[in-house]
């Protein structure tokens, strides 16, 4: 009987500041599957959408970077839990988006969920791996700790619409950064659906903002934006990457250049450390008293 029922189409929307706006431009573009079949209309984000997303990401940065690492880990794990319950939906989305068989798409989705779990576990460990005490030659206590860089623009990989996407977004937010994500241009739907999961996973609004549209168009204002602190160029081709890197120099953004990545392999910590700053704090120790060992 359901065959006879007319299905309800979904209006795909951006995910910005915890809300689901349409593009400020009022424009959409057609998203097709690998065979050219129409799947949906996706919002065609404008420069102003990019700007709004940066404002949302900046606003969320204080809370998110100030949350305990344990709390961030819990929330990242919650995202995995939410995805687990919506596996079928994402298998369908990924199969359509990337032209994969159902089993291959299922493997991608499983790996993606596991990636959230991997990074959920990293939130409260990375500081111990890359930070530590420094044995300075003097009466000082000296400690280096990693801190998030700030607002990171992430150009999601063009090919791997879901596993690749999460592989670049999760490490950015695991350490307390907030992200403005530009979804795969030709396969943005999994990213837009991910927004719906993030919205229901206790992730504060604005920590991840998802834009769809023409990567080059959205990336240019982001790369030049003075309130963006870093940019991951995973989804840019070499020509675009160079242009963006030049624009990024205006406020000395940290730039992660595009490089070949096997997203099915277990990641290292490079994507975590790419968007971390090291803060070193000194404090005098000295002796217990004036008659102490310093004489």
């Amino acid at each position: 009987m359901s065959d006879e029922r007319l299905s309800v189409f979904k209006t795909y929307k951006l995910y910005v500041g915890g809300k689901f706006p349409r593009s400020e431009s009022g424009r959409v573009y057609e998203v097709t599957d690998s065979k050219g079949q129409w799947l949906a209309n996706a919002p065609l984000s404008s420069r102003k959408d990019a700007r709004d997303a940066v404002v949302a990401a900046r606003k969320a940065f204080g809370t998110w970077s100030g949350a305990t690492a344990y709390n961030r880990g819990q929330i990242l794990y919650r995202i995995a839990e939410m995805l687990e319950g919506r596996r079928d939906q994402f298998v369908r989305e990924v199969a359509d988006a990337e032209g994969l068989s159902k089993s291959k798409a299922a493997a991608q989705v499983a790996a993606t969920i596991d990636r959230w779990v991997w990074y959920a576990g990293w939130t409260d460990k990375i500081a111990q791996v890359v930070g530590g005490g420094n044995p300075v030659a003097g009466p000082f206590f000296n400690l280096s700790t990693p801190e998030p860089t700030g607002v990171v623009a992430v150009l999601a990989p063009q090919e791997s619409s879901f596993l690749g996407l999460v592989s670049v977004v999760a490490p950015v937010i695991a350490t307390g950064n907030t992200a403005v994500v530009v979804a795969s241009e030709k396969a943005p739907l999994p990213a837009l659906c991910l927004g719906e999961v993030l919205a229901t996973s206790d992730l504060p609004g604005g920590v991840v903002n998802v834009l769809s549209g023409r990567t080059a168009e959205i990336a240019a204002p982001l790369a030049a934006h003075q309130d963006v602190n870093a940019i991951d160029l995973a989804g840019a081709d070499d020509v675009l990457a160079k242009e963006l890197e030049i624009a990024a120099a205006d406020n000395l953004k940290r730039v992660l250049r595009p490089q070949p990545v096997d997203y099915t392999a277990t990641p290292g910590i490079e994507r975590l450390t790419a968007f971390l700053e090291t803060k070193t704090v000194w404090h005098p120790t000295g002796s217990l008293g004036a008659s102490g060992s310093s004489y």
Binding site: F140, S144, V281, W282, H283, P284
Partner: peptide, 13 residues
């Protein structure tokens, strides 16, 4: 960040 000191440097830091 130097707390209660300033301009201290060390090769390990």
């Amino acid at each position: 960040v130097w707390s209660n000191t300033f301009n201290k440097f060390d090769p390990t830091s």
